[in-house]
Structure formats: C-alpha cells, structure tokens
C-alpha cells in the first residue's frame, strides 16, 4: 500500500485516474456475511468473562492478541511491500476487497483481546498496583493506547475514506495516494508497538 501511495502520487493526474477496480466492488463497505461470525465470537467472549474460567479467558486473550499482532506485522511488512509491486489496478482491486474485511476483523480482535485481557489481569492479579511486575502491565496499557491512536485516529479514517473514494464513478487517484501516504509511518509505529507487545507479554507470562 505504501508503494501504491508513492507510485500513484508521482503520476500525472491523467495517468493516476484509472484506479477504480476493474471488476465490481462489494456492495457494502463492511462484509455483512461476516457479522454472524463476529456475533458468535462476542457471545463466546461474554460467556468466558461471565464464567471467569482461566482457560477460556486465556484462550480469548492469547488467540485474539496473537492474531492481532500477527496480522498487523504480516500486513505491514509482508503484504504491503508485495502490493507495492503489483499493477495499480490490481492494487486498487485488492484494497477494495481486503480493507472491508480488515474493518470487521481488527476491531473484533482488539475487543476480544482487551476485554479478555482485563478480566485475565484481574484473575491473575496483574492489574493490581501492588503486583511485582506492574510496571510491565502499565507499559502494555501505553502500547495499546499508542496503537489505538494510530489505528483509530489515522489508519481507519484513511481506510474508510479510500473505500468510499473507490466507489465513486471516477475515483480521484491523487486523493487516494494522499490518504495512503500516511500508511508508511503508521506501519512503522504499529510494528514497533507490536514488537514491544510481544516483549511485554512474554515477560509477564514467564514472571
């Protein structure tokens, strides 16, 4: 996506125009067929929290957090550079189909990870200020806050604006490139925070 931004930005407006996906883009911004899956996951999360069972809480926190971290790093440092080497129509078509799914997957993973994580912290006593490694726990809060600011204040608004732009009869390639240009540093910040998350969580798990 970074490369798409750079390449599209460098093109003349006449060349940058054909960014609309060649095939029909999905009818809805968010894939509606995914909503029942999200509902099932959230019901499972409520059951896990209500039952306050260690295994269930650990399952939701570890699976949710692992997928969150893995997807962030994979998309930022593997998918992104590959996308940069595709043709512009291919990249636009990929983005039009990929971003809606991410808009459903990522908030679900974040919600599951944070809700189960807080409850797990209460269960294990990590969230109490008297806990021996409490500074590491607070560091994890700061890391999550930084990622939330980047994701919710920068990336998600840009993603949504790009999706709406791609649905126009004549999408503005320059505008899309401008919006996507912020993905460069956002991927770097998010990647650094996710590595910090791995360090903190493995430290707490072995404390």
């Amino acid at each position: 996506m970074t490369e798409l931004a750079r390449e599209t930005r460098d093109m003349a407006p006449a060349q940058a125009a054909p960014v609309r996906p060649a095939t029909l883009i999905p009818a809805t911004i968010v894939p509606l067929q995914g909503l029942p899956i999200v509902a099932v996951v959230l019901v499972g999360l409520v059951v896990a929290i209500a039952s306050n069972k260690l295994w269930a809480l650990d399952f939701f926190h570890v699976v949710g957090g692992g997928l969150w971290t893995g997807i962030d790093l994979f998309v930022g440092f593997v998918v992104g550079p590959i996308l940069g080497r595709l043709s512009i129509p291919a990249r636009a078509e990929f983005s039009a189909r990929f971003m809606p799914k991410m808009m459903l997957i990522m908030p679900t993973l974040v919600t599951v990870t944070l809700a189960a994580g807080w409850q797990l912290g209460l269960y294990e006593g990590f969230v109490n200020s008297g806990y021996h490694y409490h500074a590491w726990v607070v560091a994890s809060y700061v890391v999550v806050a930084v990622m939330a600011i980047v994701a919710l204040g920068v990336l998600e608004p840009a993603n949504l604006a790009v999706l709406f732009e791609l649905r126009k009869p004549e999408p503005n390639g320059e505008r899309i490139a401008h919006l996507m240009s912020r993905f460069v540093w956002a991927a770097g910040v998010t990647g650094a925070m996710q590595v910090a998350t791995l360090v903190i969580m493995t430290r707490l798990a072995t404390a």
Binding site: W118, L122, V127, N128, S129, G130, V138, Y141, V142, A145, A148, I149, L152, G153, V154, P157
Partner: peptide, 26 residues
C-alpha cells in the same frame, strides 16, 4: 476538525491509562 478529534482521543486514552494503571480499586 480531524486534529481536534484526534487530540480528544489522545486525552481520552491517556485518562484511561491513568485510571487502569492505578488498578480497579483505586
């Protein structure tokens, strides 16, 4: 508008970190 909104989000999340850091019974 966007800048003010993001600043508002930063304040909200920072406040959340402060409350969470002191523990649920603080």
């Amino acid at each position: 508008v966007m800048e003010l909104g993001v600043a508002s989000l930063v304040c909200t999340l920072t406040a959340g970190v402060i409350v969470a850091a002191r523990g649920p019974k603080a």
